[in-house]
Simulated assay, not measured.
Amino acid sequence: MRISDARDLGLFVRQSRQDKGWTQAHLAQRAGVSRRWLSDLEAGKTSAEVGLALRTLSALGATVNVSFPPPGANGIDLDELLKDFEGGRGRAD
C-alpha cells in the first residue's frame, strides 16, 4: 500500500486493526499507546509522534519500507505541457 500522508497512514492502521477484529482499546494496549492517541492516528491527525506510529504498526505486524519513485515517474504536468506548447511552438487556436 502506498502511504503518502497522515490520512493514508490512519486509514491503513484502522483497516489493519479491523481486519484482525481488534478494538482500538486492544491495539492501544498491544502498542503501549492510549486509545485516544490511536483514535487520533486513525483519524489522520498530522501531529502523531512517529515513534508511537511505528510502534503501533509493529503491534499490527506491519513493516515500513521507504522508497523513491524512479525519475520521471511523477506523472505528466499538463499545465507545464500547455505552457510549453502555447509559449514555444505557437498556439493551437
Rank of each mutant, 00 (worst) to 15 (best):
M1K: 13
M1E: 05
M1Q: 11
I3K: 01
I3R: 00
S4L: 12
D5L: 10
D5W: 03
A6L: 04
D8T: 14
L9F: 03
F12W: 04
R14T: 08
S16K: 10
S16H: 10
S16W: 03
R17F: 00
Q18K: 15
D19M: 10
K20L: 14
T23N: 05
T23S: 15
Q24W: 02
Q24S: 10
Q24R: 14
A25C: 02
L27Q: 06
A28R: 08
Q29L: 12
R30M: 05
R30V: 00
V33R: 10
R35I: 07
R36W: 03
R36E: 11
W37L: 14
L38N: 13
L38R: 12
E42I: 06
A43W: 03
G44T: 11
G44L: 07
G44S: 07
G44N: 02
G44M: 05
K45E: 02
T46W: 03
S47C: 08
A48G: 10
E49F: 11
E49G: 12
V50P: 01
V50N: 04
V50A: 13
V50M: 08
L52P: 00
L54R: 15
T56R: 10
L57R: 09
S58E: 08
S58Y: 10
A59S: 04
L60E: 05
A62E: 09
T63D: 07
T63Q: 13
P70R: 04
P70L: 02
P71W: 00
P71F: 00
G72W: 01
G72Y: 00
G72Q: 01
N74W: 06
D77Q: 08
D77A: 04
L78W: 13
L78P: 09
D79M: 14
D79T: 15
E80G: 08
D84Y: 07
G88K: 15
R89P: 01
G90L: 06
R91V: 04
A92Y: 11
A92N: 13
D93E: 09
